[in-house]
Write a protein that binds this DNA or RNA. Structure first.
Length: 504
RNA sequence: GGUCCUGUGGCCGAGUGGCUAGGCAGAGCUCUGCAAAAGCUUCUACAGCGGUUCGAAUCCGCUCGGGACCUCCA
């Protein structure tokens, strides 16, 4: 099992990855809140960690990959008006909360399949783990690190910090925040009557009568706070200490920081050893987010039905686009960049196809006809593994693969003779392309046609048919019409002489 | 206001002390009935100023610009 290194947000440096149990990896990734349809920004963590999941498996690890579904609704902590996103929208759409959640969960799963993301090993829901969350909260209260106010429970950050800071688990350890500074910063707190300190966060919230999502608890009717689910579910399925915890950079604080605090009280240790955070996708230099009103939903991204988009971009184009940038860099979205990715992917993928057609079986070439080229190819191929092992540098791996594209195409075109390279190197090339493009990067062949292109084709056929008709060549015109109909496409002659078509 | 990240050629993006990143676009050529594809060649870089160094895109300082987190957020 070869080794690799990743950047650990907890230590703020690259570290050699080693799992707690040899050969096995426990990985938890914060999943989506299914109160709405997933957008472009959501694509990045789930693709990034899918790559990591695939890579770990490629290296020979047995991985338990847990990715939650947050379906209980998150709440504004210091909120102006404490509102549950899910229940609020449920009222607007006149749906049962669970019906709404199911709808967006299904859409999320659809998008993940489109991206060719592997399914996680376990996909637990917050609503399915209310009991586990309550048990955890009770433990935190029993140990004195939480207090009850009006049916709500809050985590006492300052007490935690004082006690656990001495044990190397200070609040702020992950995000690099200094709690003392945080407390000093004067920030207007209008609805802080219940919390003892502004740093405190909710473990359980009392539910107002009109609140739809509600569960019985020792503190009354309410719903869980927004960090406890991940602590409860990760420890249930991966243990009190596991290998990797991943998510978007925006979750580093406060979400993951709070997770650490909750878990530390219950289990006396930081729950995960490696904390990985992907950077944001920006659009016109600005982070995509509901509050910025610049959200492109995934279905819009694929179809092109959004004012920012000049066209639709296929899931594989988006996946490739994301892989062309290192996961810890911000990635700026633009039509130009996506179109470049689309073309680049096509070229790379076609070269991959040509490569697979090369004959590496019938004869063995032991001495390279072009030693320099042989050497260069070997070096490029060898470097791929090093680049991937260095904090998952997919951008560099892709650059390496692209360097070989002219070689492959030249062999195909006869500019380079196939015996310029040894059979061993050609086979290595096939192996590496397949390993990275298919196995690790999860790219796949896409249907080439889409409605736009089909429309162009049909327009052409319709013109040919029109010409035939004008020549009174009805045998041809009818053949076109009838056989298209057999194929499920019906041509309709309009009164003005034009032709429309419909899929039947 | 606090904490932190960042500024690479027309666009996107690797790269942390010396060695071609790569993709897309542009130009020329080859191939081609024409075109497309493909191949070859090629032009545009390291925000600015100062410092460290034999040598800096890469380290340090300052200036200017952009962004993130501190509040639900991938």
């Amino acid at each position: 099992m070869s080794s690799f290194q990743v950047y650990n947000s907890l230590t703020r440096q690259k570290e050699r990855f080693e799992s707690l149990i040899p050969g096995k990896v426990g990985m938890y990734v914060c999943g989506p809140t299914v109160s709405g349809e997933s957008h472009l920004g959501h694509a990045r963590p789930f693709i990034t960690f899918d790559i990591l999941y695939r890579y770990l498996r490629h290296l020979g690890y047995e991985v338990r990959y847990v990715r939650n579904i947050t379906d209980a609704g998150h709440f504004e902590e210091e909120g102006r008006e404490s509102e549950d996103k899910i229940s609020k929208k449920a009222v607007l759409e006149k749906l049962e909360p669970m019906e709404l959640v199911q709808k967006y969960t299904n859409l999320f799963h659809w998008a993940m399949r489109e991206f060719n993301n592997l399914e996680p090993s376990i996909e637990p829901t917050a609503t399915g783990h209310i009991v586990e969350q309550i048990v955890m909260i009770e433990r935190i209260i029993a140990d004195g690190y939480a207090y009850v106010v009006n049916g709500s429970v809050y985590f006492d950050v300052e007490k935690y910090h004082a006690d656990f800071g001495a044990k190397g688990m200070q609040y702020g350890i992950l995000s690099g925040r200094i709690i003392e500074d945080q407390l000093e910063t004067t920030r207007e707190l209008e609805f802080q009557d219940e919390k003892r300190s502004k740093m405190d966060f909710a473990l359980w919230k009392n539910a107002a009568p009109e609140h739809i999502m509600r569960w019985k608890s020792p503190w009354g009717i309410g719903f869980p706070g927004w960090h406890i689910e991940c602590s409860a579910m990760s420890s249930k399925y991966l243990g009190e200490e596991f290998d990797i915890h991943g998510g978007g950079m925006d979750l580093q604080f406060p979400h993951h920081e709070c997770e650490i605090a909750q878990s530390a009280v219950c289990h006396h240790k930081i729950p995960a050893r490696f904390w990985l955070h992907n950077n944001m996708i920006t659009i016109n230099g600005r982070k995509m987010g509901k509050s910025y009103n610049n959200v492109i939903k995934l279905s819009e991204l694929f179809s092109g039905a959004h004012e920012i988009l000049t066209q639709g971009y296929s899931p594989m184009t988006v996946r490739f686009f994301i892989l062309q940038t290192h996961y810890r860099s911000t990635l700026d979205f633009s039509n130009d960049a996506l179109q470049a990715a689309e073309k680049g992917l096509r070229r790379l993928w076609e070269a991959f196809g040509q490569l697979n057609k090369l004959d590496t079986d019938s004869r063995a070439i032991i001495a390279a006809g072009d030693p320099d080229l042989e050497q260069k190819c070997y070096e490029v191929l060898s470097r791929l593994d090093e680049d991937m092992a260095d904090d998952l540098n997919t951008a560099k791996v892709l650059a390496g693969l692209f360097e070989l594209v002219p070689v492959i195409n030249s062999i195909k075109d006869g500019h380079i003779k196939i015996d310029a390279l040894t059979t061993a190197t050609l086979r290595m090339m096939k192996d590496q392309f397949s390993t990275y493009l298919v196995d690790i990067f999860g790219l796949k062949e896409e249907r080439k046609q889409d409605d736009q292109k089909l429309g162009a084709v049909l327009q052409l056929i319709a013109e040919i048919r029109k010409d035939a008709r004008s020549r009174k060549d009805y045998a041809t015109s009818d053949k076109i019409r009838d056989q298209l109909l057999n194929a499920g496409i019906q041509l309709k002659d309009e009164k003005d002489g034009g032709v429309s078509w419909e899929l039947v």
